[in-house]
C-alpha cells in the first residue's frame, strides 16, 4: 500500500498507540488492562506500521528478531516468579516495594508488574512473528 495520508498519520499514531499499550499494561493490576491486551495493542500498532510502509521497515525498527523479543519476555516472566521463592514462599508469590516520590506520590512496584511486562513482550514478539511472516509470504 502506498498512501501518503496513511504514512504520515501512522508516524504519529505509532507512538501514541505504543504509549497507550504501555498505559494499558501498567494499569492492568487493579483495573481492566494488563500485559496481554497491552501487547495486542502494541502488535496492532506495529501491524499498522507494516501496512503503511512495509514489513522490512518494521523488522528494522524492532532491531532484534520478534521471536527473540518473545524469548526475552519469557525470561522476564520467569524471573518475576523467583523473588517470592527467596523468602521460602512458592513460585510466583508476589513481592512489593513502595517507591515514595517527592510530593507525597507513592508508586507500588512489584513482581506482578514484571510478569505483566514479560507477557507484554511475549505477545508482541509472537504476534509480530506470526503477522510479519504471513505478510512476507504474501509479498513474495
Amino acid at each position: 500500500m502506498n498512501s501518503l495520508i496513511l504514512r504520515t498519520t501512522t508516524g504519529f499514531l505509532l507512538s501514541l498507540l505504543v504509549l497507550f499499550s504501555v498505559y494499558l499494561m501498567l494499569r492492568g493490576h487493579n483495573a481492566p488492562g494488563g500485559g496481554f491486551i497491552g501487547g495486542l495493542t502494541a502488535t496492532a500498532a506495529l501491524t499498522l506500521y507494516a501496512f503503511a510502509f512495509d514489513v522490512a521497515t518494521v523488522r528494522k525498527m524492532l532491531r532484534i528478531d520478534p521471536l527473540s523479543v518473545a524469548g526475552l519476555g519469557l525470561v522476564l516472566a520467569l524471573v518475576s516468579g523467583l523473588p517470592g521463592m527467596l523468602g521460602g514462599d512458592a513460585f510466583l508469590t508476589s513481592r512489593w516495594a513502595v517507591l515514595a516520590l517527592p510530593g507525597g506520590t507513592e508508586i507500588h512496584l512489584g513482581t506482578p508488574l514484571l510478569f505483566d511486562f514479560g507477557v507484554y513482550l511475549v505477545v508482541i514478539g509472537v504476534g509480530c512473528a506470526v503477522l510479519l511472516t504471513m505478510a512476507e509470504e504474501r509479498g513474495e
Binding site: D65, L67, S68, A70, G71, L72, L74, V75, L78, G81, M85, G88, D89, A90, F91, G125
Partner: peptide, 25 residues
C-alpha cells in the same frame, strides 16, 4: 520443596526462551 516442584517446568521454559534469544544461531 517449592523449587523442586517448579524446576522441571521452569528449566525447559528457560531453555526455550534462551533458544529464542539465540534465534539466529
Amino acid at each position: 520443596m517449592n523449587l523442586l516442584l517448579v524446576a522441571p517446568i521452569l528449566l525447559p521454559m528457560l531453555t526455550a526462551a534462551l533458544c529464542l534469544l539465540a534465534w539466529k544461531s
